[in-house]
Nucleic acid binder design. Structure first.
Lengths: 219, 219
DNA sequence: AATATAATTTAGACAAACCTAAATTTTATT
DNA sequence: AATAAAATTTAGGTTTGTCTAAATTATATT
């Protein structure tokens, strides 16, 4: 089954709005999508007919398991394209959202799986959000991107953004790996580089690009 | 000005159908787009109103210079994405058309210019068609892709698909360059590799991927 | 030149996705 | 519990891009 870009946008927004065990409301969704509640109601009927959501009028709605599967596919596409834009085309992580909003509607399973492979199966997008794999599975983690770690708060490296040899080579050269404990001492806005401190070592600076590929759990 | 995917498809098809100094007809375009003549007429009115084509009813139509500019932009996007799919994602040149038909409607000038740069400014797509540059200029050449050269017909290498160092390194290793005279002796369907013969050298085989990056002028 | 055929356009309808305004249902307040 | 307020839905309309069937214009044939 194929879906229109509009249907996909509704599904994706419901996915993001939906609390662990509650429902989404018409007004909420209209706000998120910058559209009118009446338009939302129209689409809800259509998506219900396609069995993508559970919905009784006036009672709110939530994705069905089928709907969730579709949502995860869209999220996968969005995040893989964001990763591509940042890692291969030198976009900043704050510039990629709009373009990824378009690219996420490109319809080709083999394209996305090959893109995934080309990118070395990254597990986190440039914002640190996990990328669902080809089966819709993704990691649930409490970690955050190193660029978002507060200054002078101890943390432990818990994941890297991808498995590319270039990244791993750089990390081993700098003696950073999963489990490494560190603190951020300073953030330089000019080039987004970050000065970090690892115990028993002098503080040193890493590039913004590298910082974006590191995820940490605060201790 | 921005255009819908549908408008873009009409513009692109008119561009491809339009003879050097003639017009395109309604039925022709309807056939190309797998739609009905009445639908074409509707769209012609709209595109005329947007000054993208010259059109008098019952008299055929052709792109205005503004229309041609738009068409070249779409062709550029289509061919760059095709190149990306073949060179980076390992698609065969015969598998990429459908996906590129979708990707060509993604709307972001900076995205395309960065993609171009990422790909090392290729001048020909995997089918050997020239890729317009950022200003809409492209080469006019009588050459064909090496994979389409008839067996035992002498030809001269006239262009390479891109300027990537990897490609150039491989070519210099094999002593192939612009002006090299050669013949194709055999084509192997299994892996699309091609056996070629250069005067004073024993015949040797090159990969399908390399063959796709070589363009020749029959002598 | 008249007429038949083919190409094209017009008229009127339809689906998707949106809208506004009015009606309905739920929720909050007195 | 009655009523006011807020949320939601319905009814009916718009735009885009398509369609069919009928009308018009151009082209080909006699």
């Amino acid at each position: 089954m194929n879906f229109s870009a509009s249907e996909e946008n509704y599904i994706k927004s419901i996915y993001h709005l939906q609390p662990p065990d509650g429902v989404v409301t018409t007004n909420e969704l209209a706000g998120e999508l910058q559209t009118k509640p009446a338009s939302v109601t129209d689409m809800l009927k259509k998506l219900k007919a396609k069995k993508l959501l559970h919905y009784e009028r006036y009672q709110g709605f939530r994705l069905s398991s089928e709907g969730k599967k579709i949502a995860l596919g869209i999220v996968r596409k969005h995040r893989l394209w964001e990763y591509f834009l940042v890692q291969k085309l030198q976009f900043g992580w704050d510039e990629v959202h709009e373009i990824a909003e378009q690219l996420e509607h490109i319809n080709s399973k083999v394209l996305i799986d090959r893109l995934d492979s080309f990118l070395n199966f990254p597990r986190f997008d440039p914002h640190g959000d996990p990328i669902p794999d080809t089966n819709g599975k993704m990691e649930v983690t409490g970690h955050i991107n190193l660029t978002n770690l507060e200054i002078n708060h101890a943390a432990e490296v818990s994941a890297v953004g991808s498995q590319s040899t270039e990244l791993l080579e750089l990390l081993s050269h700098k003696n950073i790996g999963i489990g490494t404990k560190l603190e951020v001492k300073k953030k330089f806005n000019f080039d987004k580089s970050v000065e970090i401190k690892i115990k028993n070592l002098p503080a040193f600076t890493i590039s913004g690009q590298l910082a974006q590929s590191l995820f940490v759990k605060p201790l």
